[in-house]
């Protein structure tokens, strides 16, 4: 058997038609991971037993594979009567998993702001709220833009993991074609190339956005 380019090309439309599902999963997971990650970081900063627990949770997430988390949620939740379906389970899994990484991004983004910034704000008489909104948050955003963009791309590249839960995203669709035709190499290669193109495109878009966002304040 040889690699059949004509057959490979014929699979493109079908695989591409699943790109919407891939992007949906990625977008929801990015938002979910950012929100949960920011929450985790706020709890971790507040200290106390909650902070200690979150600290451990983040360490635990970062020391375990995402695939195993997906299996865990997929098989364990129904055991306790929680039936969310593969798609929701997958998105929750990716959100939870990457929240551990984004929490670290937020931490680094806040820690990197020099102490003098808060002092200058206080010396000018700014209140806590004004200081957070006008001085700390914009600088945090600037610090986290690059690493956050990188993790968004990581999340995109993790969406095909949901194929193991039979979510019909691009890799899943490629496997459907493969099992119908008994030809694996072509549809998988096509899916791989589409993902590579998508990842490069989004990386580039994020880099552009960063440059615009940071503008002349970037050192």
């Amino acid at each position: 058997m040889q690699f059949d380019i004509a057959f490979a090309l014929s699979t493109v439309p079908s695989i591409l038609s699943a790109i919407g599902m891939t992007l949906l999963v990625a977008a929801v997971s990015c938002v979910g991971a950012s929100a949960v990650g920011f929450g985790l970081e706020l709890i971790r900063r507040s200290g106390g037993p909650g902070g200690l627990f979150v600290r451990f949770l983040i360490d635990f997430i970062r020391a375990t594979p995402v695939l195993v988390w997906l299996y865990c949620l997929y098989f364990i939740l129904p055991f306790y009567g929680i039936r969310l379906g593969a798609l929701a389970t997958g998105m929750i899994g990716l959100s939870l998993y990457y929240s551990g990484y984004l929490a670290e991004v937020f931490k680094a983004g806040i820690d990197a702001i020099p102490k003098g910034q808060a002092e200058a704000a206080r010396a000018l008489g700014l209140g806590r709220m004004d200081m957070t909104v006008f001085v700390i948050a914009p600088q945090m955003l600037r610090n986290i833009a690059a690493p956050m963009g990188n993790y968004f791309v990581s999340i995109l590249k993790a969406t095909p993991y949901l194929a193991v839960l039979a979510v019909p995203e691009m890799l899943g669709r490629a496997f459907d074609i493969a099992s119908d035709t008994y030809r694996y190499a072509e549809p998988l290669t096509v899916a791989g190339l589409i993902f590579l193109g998508l990842a490069l495109l989004i990386s580039l878009a994020i880099k552009r956005l960063e440059i615009r966002l940071l503008g002349p304040t970037a050192r």
Binding site: F3, K157, Y161, Y184, L188, A191, G192, F195, L196, A199
Partner: peptide, 23 residues
């Protein structure tokens, strides 16, 4: 570098697992 780094590793694994024998 970008090929190896920016590809989704799960798909790379399948592609090479299924496509290399064809080559």
């Amino acid at each position: 570098i970008e090929f190896w780094r920016s590809s989704a590793v799960i798909i790379l694994l399948f592609v090479f697992y299924y496509a290399l024998p064809l080559a």
